[in-house]
Design a binder for these strands. Structure first.
Lengths: 159, 159
DNA sequence: CTAAAATGGGCAACATGGTTGTCGAAATAG
DNA sequence: CTATTTCGACAACCATGTTGCCCATTTTAG
């Protein structure tokens, strides 16, 4: 609470604002998803389904894309399987591999998420004006270029 | 991946950008904190120390401020105690209460965090230009007004 | 003044989502 | 053919939450 940047705004607010924005979007996504028949989707599952993708992937591959161990990815796939969002099928060409594929329900959840996110972004655009929103995104792209990091959850709580 | 907002940008990038920005700041904070003698501070501890504040607080109070149960807050205080960032003292005026107070080390970590955050914000200001950064903050303040929610970690991973 | 309610702290059991380490089976490199 | 790598799984463990319960103490109602 002592030093301040050139223009007098304290620095600790910036991360809080970014988090609050992220959180608002994710909360609204999941509230809407729940309303549309997917009450059990948690942020981690969404990330995992995104990592599985339309073409499917092995658990190890999912782990790599998510930046977590294959064991952790395997547990998440277990969850997705229990909930009916993914299924494991043996790979006939490789006896070790088990391909994880999204079920119809999984694809539905992903499709609905995309639509809901678009709707939320449209709301931001309406409230801020499209130019300011595009500026915001551009600024963030400049400062946090990695972007595609779907490996988002673990590093907060994880060890 | 189907619908798009008016200007053609997909909505799912916005939360990813916000998260990447938050994460970049927090990662750099903790890397710098580690360099400055606080290698064991995790995001959750920073939030908790913030909640304890200079005047101290009870574990229940910390839980309320953080939006978690008093038991969870108690466990976090246990951690902070182990690491030497906080201490519990009996309240002589109320036999039930145990006041949690930051140690000198805890205050040091908090002070350094403030300075580091200011430095990070200055870097963003230098790279984006002060006006664009202020715009970004204003936009986020508009869309995510709650802001002060220090209860940030649990809702991601927690139950 | 006393009995009831509220509060604070802590314990236990459990859920989630990570981590290592290890192992066996299958594929691949030499 | 053998050595190495890879995949999937199991087990033990850690960190951080949750409820439910209990006890001591303080506050409040009557």
């Amino acid at each position: 609470m002592s030093a301040t940047a050139d223009d007098g705004r304290p620095g600790f607010e910036l991360p809080l604002l970014l988090l609050a924005g992220f959180r608002a979007l994710i909360d609204e996504l999941h509230a809407e998803l729940a309303r549309q028949g997917h009450p059990h989707v948690r942020p981690a599952y969404g990330f995992a389904m995104q990592a599985i993708g339309p073409g499917g992937a092995t658990a190890s591959e999912v782990g790599r894309r998510l930046g977590v161990s294959k064991q952790a990815a395997g547990k998440t796939v277990d969850r997705l399987e229990e909930l009916g969002y993914a299924e494991r099928v043996d790979d006939p060409t490789d006896g070790r591999r088990k391909l994880v594929r999204l079920t119809g329900r999984g694809v539905d959840a992903l499709d609905r998420s995309a639509v809901i996110f678009d709707g939320l972004r449209a709301r931001w655009a309406a409230e801020l004006g499209p130019g300011r929103l595009a500026d915001l995104e551009d600024s963030l792209r400049t400062m946090a270029p990695a972007g595609l990091g779907v490996d988002a959850v673990s590093w907060l709580a994880g060890g």
